[in-house]
Structure formats: structure tokens, C-alpha cells
Amino acid sequence: MSARRIWASVSTLALAAVAALGVAGPAAAADSADAATAGGYVALGDSYSSGVGAGSYLPDSGDCRRSTNAYPYLWQAAHSPASFDFVACSGATTSSVASGQLGVLSASTSLVSVTAGGNDIGFADVMRDCVLSSEAVCVNSVNNAIAQMNNSLPGRLDSLYGDIRARAPQAQVVVLGYPRFYQLSGNCVAGLTETERAAINNASDVLNDVLAKRSADAGFTFSGVVDEFTGHELCSGDAWLHGVTIPIHHSYHPKAAGQSGGYLPAFRSAV
């Protein structure tokens, strides 16, 4: 069996899991941290916030796979907010966050973090098409996802952000983005073509642009993670993201290093 066929066979397993994507001075920084910890901190969102891929999952989190290596857990351990509700869950969409995670928000909540949007635009389907089908099918699937980002996703984000604000009117809300997956002209010798990798990276950029615009319009803070992950993408030789791997649910998610070295600094800089 060729290396390409072996890789594709392992990838088929991985896709099942994917289905389940001004400077303040010291005094100002201290004031910001005090405000963030004065009330409760609530961590909402999908697998990039729950910490899928980072290991060390909390026993009571089940298939949500909430990790003690995830950025929300790391931040609260360092800052000791008045309360901490970690409800992010693998596979969450904007609608499932709205229907299943917002009950812990209240008027006393002072800080909220959230990642959502990747599952709404069919991340799993895109990766399935790119891994198992032709380059043309991959690019077409990516373009279809981008169309959803530009057409249906903004309204879904507006609805979710409005619900968050209604339930936590005093909270600082930080929306975090998604990394680019691939270092182009990197050291990968098998798998996707360079055209496919570039298309997926472009889709990440479009998604982050949509998240930034909708969060700004909602009065929230957007914090991207692209800069933090630069040099640590797949094909970089020092990846903070899993490629196709076992256990299969880790595939295409940040490792523990991606949470501590990528997401945590991006979140910390926004608080």
C-alpha cells in the first residue's frame, strides 16, 4: 500500500472524531485583572476552548473533553476568579452554545471567553473532502464553507452574542479566533497538496475576519491566535496542532503546547 493510501486510511478514522474547527501601563493592567476576577469567569464554546487534543480531561466532562491544559483552566488557575464555570464542549455550534451553555451566565459574571463558528460552517465535512477526495473537490468544499461564513454565519453569531450580552450585561466578553492550520512550503511530504493547504488557510482567515467584525459590532473583544501559532502550524516541524493522529478525536486540534503557548497568551492579552 502506498504512503498516500495508508495516510488516507488513518485519516478516515480521524474524520469521524472531527465530526463529533494603545499600550496599558502597569496600573491599568492591574485594574483590568482585578475587574476580570472580581466576578465570575465563564468559558463557553467548542473544542478549541474545551481543550480537545490537549489531554488531561476532567472526569466529569464526558465527550465534551474539558482539559486542565485548556486555556480557560490555565487562566483561572493563575488568576483565581470569584467563580469559574467551564462549560465549553467538543462539537458545539453557535446554536448549541446558546441553548446549552448560557445558563451559568448572570449579572455578576465579569468575564466570558468563547470560540464558536467552526462547526457551523461544516469544518468536519471540509476536512473529509480535502483528505479523501481530489484537489478540485477540496477547493470547492472550502469555497462552499466560505460562502456560509459570509452569508449565514454572521446572523448566527449576532444571535449568540446578543444572548450572551443579555445574560451577562456587565461582563467583558472575549471572542477568540482559530489558527491557520498549515505552514506553506513546509516540511510535510504526504497528505494534502499545497493548493489544498493554502485554501484551508485562507478559509481560516475569512472565518477570523467574520468573527472579528461580528464581535466588534457586539461590543466584544476579538483576540486572534494566528500570530501566536505562526511557526507552529502543521508542516512547521514544531507543530502545536495535531495532524491525523490517534486517538482520532485529537486530530486537527491544538496540543497542550497550543493551548498554553497559543490560546492562553491571546486570551491573557485581551483581558
Score class of each variant (00 low, 15 high):
Pro154Phe: 04
Asp163Phe: 06
Glu194Met: 12
Gly103Glu: 11
Gly100Pro: 01
Leu58Thr: 08
Ala166Asp: 13
Gly100Arg: 13
Leu184Cys: 14
Asn201Asp: 14
Ala98Asn: 08
Leu132Thr: 11
Ala190Pro: 03
Glu196Trp: 01
Gly62Ile: 03
Ser83Glu: 09
Ser134Leu: 09
Gln101His: 08
Val104Ile: 04
Asn150Ser: 10
Arg128Cys: 03
Leu74Gly: 05
Gln170Thr: 14
Arg156Trp: 00
Phe86Ser: 04
Trp75Val: 02
Ala98Gln: 13
Val87Gln: 10
Thr195Arg: 11
Ala199Thr: 03
Thr195Tyr: 07
Cys64Tyr: 02
Ala199Gly: 02
Ser185Asn: 15
Met149Thr: 10
Gln183Pro: 08
Ala124Trp: 02
Leu74Met: 10
Ser61Gln: 05
Val174Thr: 05
Ser141Ile: 08
Leu102Asp: 04
Glu196Thr: 05
Phe84Ser: 12
Ala147Pro: 02
Asp158Thr: 14
Val189Thr: 15
Ser110Asp: 07
Leu184Pro: 14
Tyr178Pro: 00
Asp125Met: 04
Ser185Phe: 11
Pro154Gln: 12
Arg65Lys: 15
Ser106Asp: 12
Leu132Asp: 11
Ala147Glu: 14
Asn187Ser: 15
Arg165Gln: 13
Gln170Tyr: 14
Gly122Glu: 01
Asn140Cys: 01
Pro169Leu: 04
Ala147Trp: 09
Ile121Ser: 00
Asn202Pro: 08
Leu105Cys: 15
Met149Asn: 09
Leu74Ala: 12
Val131Phe: 15
Leu153Met: 15
Ser110Asn: 12
